[in-house]
Lab assay of single mutants.
Amino acid sequence: NKFNKEQQWATYEILNLPNLNEEQRKAFIDSLKDDPSQSANLLAEAKKLNDAQA
Rank of each mutant, 00 (worst) to 15 (best):
Q24M: 04
D34L: 14
F28K: 00
N19H: 13
L42H: 04
K33R: 14
Q38N: 02
E23R: 09
E6Q: 04
N4P: 05
N16M: 09
A40N: 10
A52N: 12
L17T: 00
Q38W: 04
N21S: 15
S39G: 08
E22D: 13
Q38E: 10
K2P: 15
R25T: 06
D34K: 11
I29W: 04
E13Q: 13
E22H: 09
D30R: 10
A44P: 01
A44T: 11
F28P: 00
Q24K: 02
A46Y: 02
N1Q: 05
A40D: 08
N4V: 06
E13N: 06
E45P: 00
Q38H: 08
D34S: 14
R25M: 06
L32G: 01
D30Y: 07
E22S: 09
A10M: 05
A54M: 11
K48H: 11
P18M: 09
E6A: 03
L17F: 07
L15V: 06
E23A: 13
Q8N: 05
S37I: 05
L15W: 08
W9I: 15
A44S: 11
K47F: 09
N19Y: 15
S37W: 06
Q38V: 06
D35E: 08
S39W: 15
K2Y: 06
D51E: 12
D34M: 14
P36L: 04
N4Y: 10
Y12E: 15
P36R: 02
E23L: 09
R25D: 00
L43V: 14
N19I: 01
N19D: 06
Q53N: 09
L49W: 05
A46K: 00
I29S: 03
E13G: 05
P18K: 07
R25L: 06
L32V: 10
K26H: 12
L20Y: 00
N4D: 15
L17A: 01
N50T: 01
A10Y: 11
L32R: 00
A52G: 07
N16K: 12
E22R: 06
D35N: 13
S39Q: 05
F3T: 05
A52F: 13
F28N: 00
S39Y: 15
N1D: 15
L43M: 07
Q38F: 05
N16L: 13
K47Q: 09
K33Y: 14
E23G: 10
K5L: 03
K33P: 02
I29P: 00
E45K: 08
S31V: 11
D30P: 00
S39K: 04
L43Y: 09
K26L: 12
P18A: 07
N4L: 09
W9L: 14
Q24E: 04
I14V: 05
Q53L: 05
N19L: 04
I29E: 02
D30A: 11
K2E: 15
E23V: 12
I14Y: 01
L17H: 02
N19W: 14
E6R: 01
S37A: 08
Q53I: 11
K5T: 13
S37Q: 10
I29T: 06
L49F: 05
P18R: 06
R25S: 04
L32Q: 02
N4K: 03
K5H: 09
D51V: 09
A44K: 13
L20Q: 00
A46M: 01
L15I: 07
S31I: 08
L17G: 00
S37V: 05
A10I: 10
R25H: 03
A44N: 12
E22Q: 13
A27R: 12
E22Y: 08
K48Q: 08
I29Y: 04
K33L: 09
L32H: 01
N4M: 05
K2S: 12
Q24N: 02
K26P: 00
F3E: 13
N1G: 08
D34W: 11
T11S: 12
R25N: 01
Q7I: 03
Q8H: 06
E23Q: 13
K5Q: 14
L43F: 06
K48L: 13
L49G: 01
N21D: 12
W9V: 13
E45G: 03
P36H: 04
A54W: 09
T11V: 12
N4F: 11
D30L: 11
A46V: 02
A52T: 09
S39P: 03
Y12D: 15
F28Q: 00
K26W: 10
D35F: 14
A40H: 12
D51S: 11
W9Q: 13
R25A: 07
N4T: 08
F28I: 05
A54H: 12
E6Y: 08
S31H: 11
A52Y: 10
N16H: 10
N1F: 01
N1I: 05
N19A: 11
N16V: 07
S37H: 08
Q7M: 14
S39H: 15
I29F: 05
Q7F: 11
D51K: 10
L32I: 15
E13M: 12
A52M: 13
A54Q: 12
K47L: 07
S31T: 11
Q8W: 11
E6D: 09
D30S: 12
L32E: 00
Y12Q: 14
D30Q: 13
N21L: 11
F28S: 01
K33V: 14
E13P: 02
E45D: 07
Q7P: 04
K33G: 07
D35G: 03
E22V: 06
L43H: 03
L17Y: 05
D30T: 12
D35L: 05
D35M: 10
K48P: 00
A10D: 04
P36Q: 02
A10T: 07
N41Q: 11
L42R: 06
D51P: 01
N21R: 13
